[in-house]
Each structure stands twice: as structure tokens, then as C-alpha cells.
């Protein structure tokens, strides 16, 4: 089978470096190899340092909250009562708890919708669909990832929002559920693609062994292939979560942007990302509001980094449990 050949290819290690006369040309090639390697390393380091510098810059803009507390705002004020976000007010109130709650509420709803859909779609394309259909389904779902989020936002605002309201009888037309549906459209392709890759990467002898023991195709898919691909599926979900938590345009357009401290999914919701997008354009440089918005950015950055890190740990552990050695 094709898949086995790939596995064997990976395991193939040349016994010894082939001996060649150390001619001038070969030396030159080695030098070039070395240069290319360093060049690639250099670019990789640039990418890493850019991410690091972005974090440093954002955190630096928020830092005076600790050292100077501009306008009497310190690092503790985003967490003290009242739990209200009213930055333009006689007494500005910058409590971020409703924003954090709102962010997680919307993201969770999006994950609850997107994960089963993407997972089942991936399972179907990887295990059941005839090749001709698979070649057609996969690019189509991946095409969804190419739709600009403002277009998704507009579509949800005009079409989905009214539909959701009339089906569920919500009081508010723009609410966390509608925003979650919008977000799920953005993350379905992310979760789908990576899951599908993980499923196809499961070695074929797993399938053969399972079928040989008398398991049906469905049993094989659900009980053998799905668990074997679980590290990859976990990675897919984490990437989807990260995309959803930072998505701005869709939530800004369809969530209603009201900062309310409630777990009710049927009411408007305001997220961290949408708050930054809506308010950063207007704030006075260096003011307390400005610092708070950068603090929100730092928070968002930390949340996604922590999630990615935790996801990576889980992924490794699963992988080593399943395959014996860390990948």
C-alpha cells in the first residue's frame, strides 16, 4: 500500500555517508550547504523574534498600569467591582471580567458547533468517501477558510441572525449564539483540514488489523482510527480555538457588543478582540483607557499562548502513550 511505503521511507536511514573524492566541487557544495542552513536559521529566528517583539511592545504599552497607574487606574482595577465596561463615562469603568467571560462564551459556542461538524466531515472524507468525492469535498471545505471574515460577518448579520432569532425565539437578534455560529464558519475549515490530515496519516495496518478481527468499517473508524488520530485532532481543536478567540470582525458585527456579566447565551456579548478593535482607534495616546486596551491585548496574547502550550503538552503525551516514543 502507498501509506506503508511512506512509513518505510521515513524509517530508512542510510548506513554510511557515501565516500566521494574530496574534490573542489564537493567542498564548494558543503560550504553552500552550511550557508543555506545558516540563512534558514536566520530567517527562522527573525520570525520568532518578531512574535517575541510584538509581545514585548504590547506589554510595554500596558506596563505603566503597574508603575504609574495613570488616572488612578492600576493593574487591579480591571478586576474590581463593579463588573461593568463603560470606558467613556464620567467615572470610567474598566472591568474586564464581562469581556473575558463573553470571549470564552462565544468561543465555546463556536467550538461546540464546529467540532462535531468538522470531525464528522473529516471522518467521512478520510474513511468512507470514494476518492473521487474526497477530491471534491476537501478543497471545497478548505475554500471556506478563504472567505474574508467581514464577508462571513455580513452574511451572518443579514441572513443567519434573523433565522436564529425566529427559530429559538430569542429576545435579542444579535447574541452569543449567533456570534458563535459566525465564528464556527470561520473555524470549521481549520479543524476539518488538520483532522482530515491526521486521520489519513494513521498507518493502514491499523485499519487492516481491525477489519481482519471482524470489526465493521464504522467500528474501525470510530474505535480505532479516531483514537489513533487523537493527537492530531487535539491540535486541530486548539488551532480552531485560537482562531476563534482572536477573531474580531465577525464578533464585532454580529455579537451586539454589550458587555454583560451573564452565562446566558441568548443575550448580546462583547469580546476582548472586538473591544480592542472598536475602541483603539479613538483613545487618547497614553491615557488610562489606552493602557487598559493594551492590557487586554496582552491578556489575549497570554491566553492563546497558554492554550497553545497546554495543547502541545497534551498532544505530546497522547502521542507518546499511543506510539511509545515522543514524535
Amino acid at each position: 500500500m502507498k501509506r506503508e511505503a511512506i512509513v518505510r521511507d521515513n524509517l530508512y536511514v542510510p548506513a554510511k555517508r557515501p565516500r566521494v573524492n574530496a574534490s573542489n566541487g564537493l567542498k564548494w557544495r558543503r560550504v553552500m550547504d552550511r550557508v543555506a542552513e545558516k540563512l534558514i536559521l536566520f530567517f527562522a529566528l527573525i520570525a520568532i523574534s518578531i512574535i517575541f517583539l510584538i509581545f514585548v511592545y504590547i506589554a510595554r504599552e500596558a506596563f505603566p498600569l503597574i508603575t504609574q497607574s495613570p488616572e488612578g487606574i492600576s493593574l487591579s482595577s480591571p478586576f474590581t467591582a463593579p463588573f461593568v465596561w463603560q470606558p467613556v463615562s464620567g467615572v470610567p469603568k474598566y472591568n474586564v471580567v464581562p469581556l473575558i467571560l463573553g470571549t470564552f462564551k462565544v468561543t465555546l459556542i463556536a467550538m461546540l458547533i464546529a467540532t462535531p461538524l468538522a470531525l464528522l466531515a473529516a471522518l467521512y472524507t478520510a474513511e468512507f468517501a470514494p476518492p473521487s468525492l474526497r477530491e471534491w469535498i476537501k478543497p471545497t471545505i478548505e475554500l471556506l477558510a478563504g472567505i474574508p471574515s467581514v464577508v462571513i460577518g455580513f452574511f451572518v448579520l443579514i441572513v443567519i441572525a434573523s433565522w436564529v432569532q425566529s427559530v429559538f425565539g430569542f429576545e435579542f437578534r444579535l447574541n452569543a449564539v449567533t456570534a458563535g455560529i459566525g465564528l464556527s464558519l470561520a473555524i470549521i475549515p481549520v479543524i476539518y483540514t488538520i483532522t482530515e490530515d491526521a486521520l489519513t496519516a494513521v498507518p493502514n495496518h491499523y485499519r487492516e488489523a481491525s477489519l481482519a478481527l471482524g470489526a465493521s468499517k464504522a467500528q474501525t473508524a470510530m474505535r480505532v482510527i479516531l483514537p489513533a488520530a487523537s493527537p492530531g485532532i487535539g491540535a486541530a481543536m486548539i488551532l480552531g480555538f485560537g482562531r476563534a478567540i482572536g477573531e474580531t470582525m465577525i464578533v464585532l458585527m454580529v455579537s451586539g457588543n454589550a458587555a454583560m456579566l451573564t452565562l446566558d447565551p441568548a443575550v448580546p456579548v462583547r469580546t476582548l478582540a472586538a473591544t480592542i478593535a472598536a475602541e483603539l482607534g479613538e483613545v487618547v495616546f497614553g491615557s488610562g483607557h489606552y493602557r487598559i486596551l493594551f492590557f487586554l491585548g496582552t491578556l489575549l496574547f497570554l491566553i492563546t499562548s497558554a492554550l497553545n502550550w497546554a495543547g502541545d503538552r497534551v498532544n505530546r503525551r497522547l502521542r507518546s502513550r499511543l506510539f511509545g516514543s515522543p514524535a
Binding site: 463615562s89 448579520l157 444579535l174 458585527m253 458587555a259
Partner: peptide, 21 residues
């Protein structure tokens, strides 16, 4: 302050659209 459930929308066109619907 505006009420807690006040929905801030990006642009007046978004407001008229929301009220129309």
C-alpha cells in the same frame, strides 16, 4: 451610563439595519 444590554454597533448604517430588522 448606557444600560448594560446596550448594543454598540460599528457605524450608523449598522444601527438602522439592526432597527429595521
Amino acid at each position: 451610563d448606557f444600560a448594560q444590554n446596550y448594543q454598540g454597533l460599528p457605524g450608523t448604517a449598522a444601527v438602522t439595519n439592526a432597527v429595521a430588522k
